[in-house]
Design a binder for these strands. Structure first.
Lengths: 155, 155
DNA sequence: TTTGGATAGTTTCATATGTAACTAATATTG
DNA sequence: CAATATTAGTTACATATGAAACTATCCAAA
């Protein structure tokens, strides 16, 4: 009797893309809630603040590259942060198209408040792993990132 | 001279929630494009198909639990799949509120087509890692999942 | 049995997001 | 130094998503 064609089973719970997605969402949501509840910031706004704090005078395009956000998302996050008074747009002298973005004093203030909270969330999370395991995880993720997106660097 | 208070630096590119999010999105998007381009399915619809194939007669609520989708998302994905002719809703005899969902013959057909493609995408991705590393990654992710969401099992 | 919840699932509405079109400025090239 | 192409960023529109309200059914206690 002919056997019906039958694929290898696909259990969602062992399928890497699914597992990664669920894990990432669980973690992101947890942290996003912190930003939002305490400071009224979206995760995108927080990311923009983080890179702007790191590189004052950065342009919107550069922010997009460093955060993997598209330009519309950056534009909206920047607009929101300016609205909130946390970010300031300065004209760029050499290129009038580019904007030069810097945190305001208020922006730096709440940035300084968020950083330890974010780091502490992360620390609490990774405290389930030993130092060795943390390093190993970072290494494996790096390899995956390269395999998933060989054309451009993810981080 | 008094030193300005200064937090530990937060480099986004080494911040686990960020890295995970970017990696997961890169992978999901890659696979989502495959489902969509070849079969016109969203990632949510694909997840619903996967668990329904695994457990014929499953209810929408159960699907939500197994896929980490909320009930609105499940409802919409199910409606779309029925529209496409891939899923069938049967009345549940014991409980008229519950729906009993099964793939149609057409649904099983494209499911059988997608599975090997999805598995092959995954295989290509994880081929960057040795068997040992794959197992280690799964283990570390499991630990993180538990730390991130101790209340309920993610997978 | 009736009545006040719970539960399954859908619909509605407000917001978020992505794509494409647009504006303004700079760079290139003939 | 025109004319054209490219780049930075915003706006508009269409679709996706989530929270809350809603409908229908079932359960539990008086």
């Amino acid at each position: 009797m002919a056997e019906k064609s039958r694929s290898a089973p696909l259990r969602l719970s062992t399928f890497l893309p699914f597992r990664l997605s669920v894990l990432s969402n669980a973690i992101s949501q947890r942290i996003a809630e912190l930003y939002d509840r305490e400071f009224g910031l979206s995760i995108w706004q927080w990311r923009v603040m983080a890179v702007t704090a790191d590189t004052p005078g950065i342009s919107a395009t550069e922010i997009g590259q460093r955060t993997q956000m598209d330009k519309v998302a950056v534009s909206r996050a920047v607009a929101g942060l300016i609205e909130l008074g946390y970010l300031e747009r300065r004209a760029s002298t050499e290129d009038a198209r580019r904007s030069s973005l810097v945190l305001t004093a208020a922006g730096r203030g709440i940035y300084e408040m968020i950083v330890p909270l974010a780091l502490s969330e992360e620390a609490q999370l990774v405290s389930a792993l030993s130092e060795r395991e943390q390093a190993e995880l970072a290494r494996l993720m790096g390899k995956l990132a390269k395999a998933a997106s060989p054309e451009r660097d993810l981080w």
